[in-house]
Nucleic acid binder design. Structure first.
Lengths: 201, 201
DNA sequence: CCTGCAAAACTAACAACGTTAGGATTCTAC
DNA sequence: GTAGAATCCTAACGTTGTTAGTTTTGCAGG
């Protein structure tokens, strides 16, 4: 093959393959779900032989891990730029969190789910990334709660948005239109608690 | 091989294989996680050739689906026998829910997660089973809430216990001793809402 | 008891996968 | 322009899900 030395498309020698693999992997992840990630399929879509990918990622799980890292970075960015307006500082963050999951369902499952073949190493790497996210939530709460309450409150909040995100991803909520309204009404309950008659949950 | 006609162990001709496959599948599910479910491995452990299993289950996903059905039945049983004492009717149910997930982490992930290869048919079957569970929660709430509040309250509650279950399964909570205490303190927050200073979540 | 039939098991095989080994190509640096 | 490293390729191994076809097993009727 002759070298097309400066086309923006198709010049893999020198650095472009890794990025292309990640792009294609992410596309497949969102289209088919985390379990469908396939080294051969990704390589095929990029237009390259499967073993070539191993020059950039030692295992399939390494691709998944790289995607998860992308995901955590994007999630962190969204949480930081979430509107922290005066009334309802945390609802903005909660909304941003669930929105991220809904915008990237496959990625979100990969970040928190059992998508990859669970080789212990990256499992550990993932755990660290998750805990970093958790710490961020706790830091936010620490500003307005007694230290003793922070741990439970953080777990409460994270459980709520995490569970809500997964349930909505699974499509249990029908109408794709008013997602935000549903999310907000659930988040409001986190502030008030369940309505009176059952307040003794 | 001579037929050992009445031993409780190893007489597969006539009905025992299906059950044995399910037992072994569930063991593997809890030991290695949903993604590690393997037709050949299950058959191997049962002591049978892989294709034999196809007389009882048309696909690997069918085994997963059968396990999930077991799981939903067991979960429903636990929720129904959960103590609904006077103060805190729902906390007993919430505790039972999360406990079930912690006692059967692999199964719980299978029931709600992306464990199986997501062939659309059983995906649909799973969805029905999940919605049945959801309806049960809503029925419990309908007794003490206005109809208009039920939907949101149910989603709120289920998100909370679902998220909490998954987070705890993932081992983000260190000490395996006081699981119940952690769960209860989170559930209490569902009744009261977040503490004052941040009540404007 | 023995003969036939259906259920249930087995062996052999295909396609696809993850991954490794080793040979060819292409870019970079001197 | 040539050496060497980086990058890509083809070939291959072992494993998986699954199908096809054959043999064994147990049961029913004579």
């Amino acid at each position: 093959m002759s070298s097309r030395s400066s086309g923006s498309h198709g010049r893999y020698h020198h650095g472009a393959l890794r990025a292309a693999l990640l792009v294609e992997a992410r596309a497949q992840l969102e289209k088919e779900g985390p379990a469908a990630l396939s080294m051969r399929e990704i390589a095929r879509r990029v237009g390259v032989a499967a073993p070539s990918a191993y020059h950039h990622f030692p295992k399939l799980d390494a691709i998944a891990l790289a995607l998860a890292e992308e995901g955590f970075a994007e999630l962190a960015a969204r949480l930081e730029t979430a509107p922290t307006n005066a009334k309802g500082q945390l609802s903005g963050v909660g909304l941003a969190y669930v929105r991220f999951a809904l915008d990237n369902p496959g990625l979100y499952r990969l970040m928190f789910g059992d998508g990859l073949k669970t080789s212990s190493t990256e499992h550990h790497a993932l755990r660290i990334l998750r805990e970093r996210t958790y710490e961020r939530v706790k830091t936010g709460l620490r500003a307005r709660l007694r230290e003793e309450q922070v741990e439970t409150a953080a777990l409460f909040l994270w459980s709520l948005v995490h569970g809500l995100a997964l349930l909505m991803i699974d499509g249990r909520i029908g109408k794709p239109a008013n997602h935000d309204a549903v999310i907000m009404s659930v988040l409001r309950l986190a502030g008030t608690g369940l309505p009176s008659a059952s307040s003794q949950l």
